[in-house]
Simulated assay, not measured.
Amino acid sequence: MQDLKDLYYKFLSQKCTPEEISYLMNHFLLKGEETELKKIIQAELESEHFETQDTVEVSTRLSHNRTSINNIIQEELSQKRSSWNIFLKAAAILTLITAFSWYFFKSNADHKLPGNQILASGDITPGSNRARLTLSNGESIDLENANEGLVVNKDGASYAKIIGGKLTCLLQSSGNIDTAFNTITTPKGGVYQLVTPDGSRVWLNASSELKFPSSFGPGKRVVELKGEAYFEIAKDKNHPFVVKTPGQATEVLGTHFNINNYADEEATTTTLLEGAVRVHSTNGGAGLVLHPGQQSILKGQQLKVEKADESAVLDWMNGKIVFKNESLKSIMRKVSRWYGVDVQLKGDIGDMQFWGAVSRNNNLSSILNYLKETEDLDYTITGTNVTIFKKKP
């Protein structure tokens, strides 16, 4: 039989024959030899840097394994009640199966289907890095499935590259200015990060769109946004950076700020974290200068400034969904975008207020159960349709 370590790796690749699996399991139970295999497993677990998140699939699989081990113990005890080795062997098998289970989920994590997944339990997984780049020449690239280091070519020249999981636009020389707009869009359940040609960094939230030029020409650096994005602008006092949104323009020199301009929201909000920006309505009227910690709100043609709640504004950047005296219908708009679902509120519950925070890394049921436990509510999930209603008395 081949080397134990090689056989172990073959098992992880799901290429073992039934005879080899039997040999591996039996070898694990041999006196004095179990330590060797345990060391191999431990070394591999320590060499991997993956989140052992307790998902529904993992919990189900491990629960099944534990049940199987318990059945083995009970069956053996009915025949050999005095054998302490039964427990030792069962524990050893469980240790091995548990380790294999984690590897099973880790190895299959790289082969997930795109988009939010509908689980067998009826739950839905959270969003992930997903976006599509459409070049000005009409070429379209799926960035979700783009490999690290991929070079994006435009009209025969290298234009951008996937670096560190984000789209990085290559700096263009002054003699090769191309101001034609490219578009990057994120779907429901998708976020993405890019670096524009001037070195500015942009994080796009779900269901968002950013139009930006292949290279910035002389004058202002202009981009167009629909949805929500967080910006860290490269400083260039001679070339102000302008973010255009429907009904508004935000001009900066170098700063950190967030703009929320979803079509289904009641207002456009611009929140400043660092530096200074000038916000003005495209319908006319005097602009407003924001200072760090302030937020402008454009509703209709009225533009006003108030103190910002940065933790709530930047919840999506921090991996959370935060609501502070926020209505259920407002919270569900966030949920719909992040989990890729359609939400129906039955009855007079849309204006119910909630206070709390949940992780955006959890499945959909996490936030729904939180709301359910806070108020007298219940819900159903059917495919990508969510219905929330008052509990029956």
Score class of each variant (00 low, 15 high):
residue 301 Q to I: 02
residue 302 Q to V: 15
residue 303 L to S: 01
residue 303 L to T: 03
residue 303 L to E: 05
residue 304 K to F: 12
residue 306 E to V: 13
residue 306 E to Q: 15
residue 307 K to W: 00
residue 307 K to E: 15
residue 309 D to F: 01
residue 310 E to H: 12
residue 313 V to A: 14
residue 313 V to R: 00
residue 315 D to E: 05
residue 316 W to K: 05
residue 318 N to R: 11
residue 319 G to N: 03
residue 320 K to E: 09
residue 320 K to L: 13
residue 322 V to A: 07
residue 322 V to C: 03
residue 323 F to W: 01
residue 324 K to S: 02
residue 325 N to H: 09
residue 326 E to M: 10
residue 326 E to S: 10
residue 327 S to E: 06
residue 327 S to P: 10
residue 327 S to H: 04
residue 327 S to M: 10
residue 328 L to G: 09
residue 330 S to W: 03
residue 331 I to W: 03
residue 332 M to R: 01
residue 332 M to S: 04
residue 336 S to F: 04
residue 336 S to K: 11
residue 336 S to P: 01
residue 337 R to V: 06
residue 337 R to N: 05
residue 337 R to G: 02
residue 339 Y to G: 02
residue 340 G to Q: 08
residue 341 V to M: 06
residue 342 D to F: 11
residue 343 V to N: 08
residue 345 L to Y: 08
residue 345 L to N: 10
residue 346 K to E: 15
residue 349 I to N: 11
residue 350 G to Y: 02
residue 351 D to W: 10
residue 357 A to K: 12
residue 358 V to G: 06
residue 358 V to E: 13
residue 358 V to M: 13
residue 359 S to G: 08
residue 360 R to H: 05
residue 362 N to K: 15
residue 362 N to Q: 14
residue 364 L to E: 10
residue 364 L to K: 06
residue 366 S to K: 12
residue 366 S to W: 12
residue 367 I to R: 05
residue 367 I to W: 09
residue 367 I to E: 01
residue 367 I to Q: 09
residue 368 L to Q: 06
